[in-house]
Design a protein around this nucleic acid. Sequence first.
DNA 1: AGCGGATGTACAG
DNA 2: TGTACCTCCGCTT
Length: 280
Amino acid sequence: MPEGNVIHYHARRLRRAFRRSAVRLDSPQGRFSEGAALLNGLTLHAADAYGKHLLLDFGDLRWLHIHLGLFGTWRIGTGAPPAPTGQIRLRLRNETHFAELRGPTTCEVLDIAQRDALLARIGPDPIRTDADPLLAWARVERSRQPIATLLMDQRIFAGVGNIYRAEVLFRQNISPFRAGVDVGWSDFHALWVDLVDLMSRGTSRGRIMTVRPADLPTIRGAVAPAASRGIAGAGRRGRYDTRAYVYRRDGRACFLCDTSIEVTTLQARRLYWCPACQAS
DNA sequence: AGCGGATGTACAG
DNA sequence: TGTACCTCCGCTT
């Protein structure tokens, strides 16, 4: 259930574990047996994330394309792979590491034309240093859609998901319902710069942390209930540890102004905001 | 032990 | 707009 930061995190771990080594692939579950056989034994040359998409370059102009969707997970470890348990779509192994992939929306082999088509349909990714924010600005400045919708559009902002959308709008004091045409360069630039910062920092540990350190002392007490509800990642496994201003905090007091955080459904996703801090 | 909900996307209609 | 995908976790029982 990852946003782009987690995909970049996995890409880095897979690079460190498998790059420049011959990788054995299999599909214990059986649903990717053909693709695994096609790539089995090839050398991994690169592992890169583009938004929420992961591409593993096995040379020969073929790439393994993985999208985790809502449910997908990676488990990466050292040594020999454990005996398969449950549904493992794809397993990678070399002399030193193993990786298990479960529940992805997409796990397929692409040729170069298919790879190029994929990259052409996703927008600039704030985590990538080669991203061009002007491509996103060109879409935003002429759209009458609410900025909350545009932020979730992967053709405009690749890798942004429901948490980063809510949090970056709160941090920049922008109403989620303001139309793209009314955002203006100054606010767009602030949003982009903040996404670069938040998402890049979220990549190192694969976690989303959006609360400014300066605000932490004043809200420490208020964070605890979120932790007990599993939102702030107090769990032992701490999979997607989150410290958030508004995400899943509906009905509770805004950390900065005490106004009750609101929630609504926008295009089948839950949207959270502070009606006072984000009045317009 | 069982239930509902979740950081996502595609497709039907 | 709704549904399918099909995993993990926290919460309830």
